[in-house]
Design a binder for these strands. Sequence first.
RNA 1: CGGAGUGUGGCUCAGUCUGGUAGAGCACCGCGUUCGGGACGCGGGGGUCGCAGGUUCGAAUCCUGCCACUCCGACCA
Length: 439
Amino acid sequence: MRLSRYFLPVLKQNPAEAQIASHRLMLRAGMLRQEAAGIYAWLPLGYRVLRKIEQIVREEMDRAGAIEVLMPTLQLADLWRESGRYDDYGAEMLRITDRHERELLYGPTNEEMITEIFRAYVKSYKELPKNLYHIQWKFRDEQRPRFGVMRGREFLMKDAYSFDVDDERGQQSYNRMFVAYLRTFQRMGLQAAPMRAETGPIGGDLSHEFIVLAQTGESAVFLDRRMLDLPVPGEDVDYEGDLSGIVADWTRLYAATEDVHDPARYERETAEADRLTARGIEVGQTFYFGDKYSRPMKANVSGPDGVERPVQMGSYGVGVSRLAGAIIEASHDEAGIIWPDAVAPFGVGIVSLRPGDAAVDAACERAYAALTATGKEPLLDDTDERPGGKFATMDLIGLPWQLIIGPRGLADGVVELKRRRTGERRTLPLDEALAAISA
RNA sequence: CGGAGUGUGGCUCAGUCUGGUAGAGCACCGCGUUCGGGACGCGGGGGUCGCAGGUUCGAAUCCUGCCACUCCGACCA
């Protein structure tokens, strides 16, 4: 992409309403536009990041055996009356009436709908296990939206739902999602720790919150620092095999958010040197809730014995839009965002210090073509802004690499290559720089 | 939902107390000088001062009502 043709409305000044780093930087970097409280338009740069995050989530869900569907944002109130949640959910649910006076709602989650779909088609244990997920916009009418996309009213969420014939297999499905989450967050360059959680209005008795550690996180967390050294399962993890050992390793050590923190237990189980008090952001939650929805909604399957019984379910959410903010909270400095390579909106920024100079233009075009060909998704700053402004913009939008090409360097046959994360700069011939980026 | 605030050009804000026909910086357009870490000069465009009503010769400014948004707290993917 050439910046001269792109849409990147960066702000030099901090918007007054943005109090936390991710919100401030997303607005300044031209990623977001607030349209109402907790409701945002995703501008091109932000949308590219959102899609990268979404794609990583999708790949790890698929790898773990989940199957993607897409359910609508609007749901019938009657469906929610079946589970009893239409009245329970309260003012957080956005309720809508259509022209025929039918009562609808903008879905805050999809347990009811997925259960309705499941029960319409699946009748036998032979078709299990199944895990269906989608990535769709949700709406929860928060009392107080804040922190930009970290606590929006409208947000993009991945929600998966597992269906099993009995409790034991249900736990196995839970373990598959647990492992998939470890992988998902690691791929985004995050350190995420699973913590035993309250189940809240979704219900059930087994649940973990996945908390990303970030200095500016919204809540305090207490954990055994040895958890941070645990190995995350690789791509070759066997989702058909027994994952209980991995889950056990990741749930053995103490880790708790402040609302469920038990200081006495913490001090008993964790040596003083291993105690880590940090701040965190919840980016995912897993629930195993058995027949909480399948029983009232009569989602039954026949077992090998021919007896019908409620299917055993779990649900597994990831805050996709929240992750964009969480990644920034975990990875930024005074100058701007520092994107992990896997979610960067562009892989490398090429800074032309003198558009119009024949040698500079030629070198930039060569770099642009080469990096495009190798899938590095370059963003070429070919505008006639002054160098200082270009450097500031590149640091702000946080692309992993900056390739700086100007007449002075070219006269000596070199360009400058900067790594955003470390600030390391190297002066070297263009071909070597291109090789270093692709290495 | 309790508490505290703020609404003035795309952004950051001054002007409101003490009423007199709307300003600054940044951004934008034109010209020129510049050009390796957010340059400078000259000229220019852009604002129903959140909305409605009221007081007044005259309202961004005073009064009443409403709306939106933000922050702190309680609550939540």
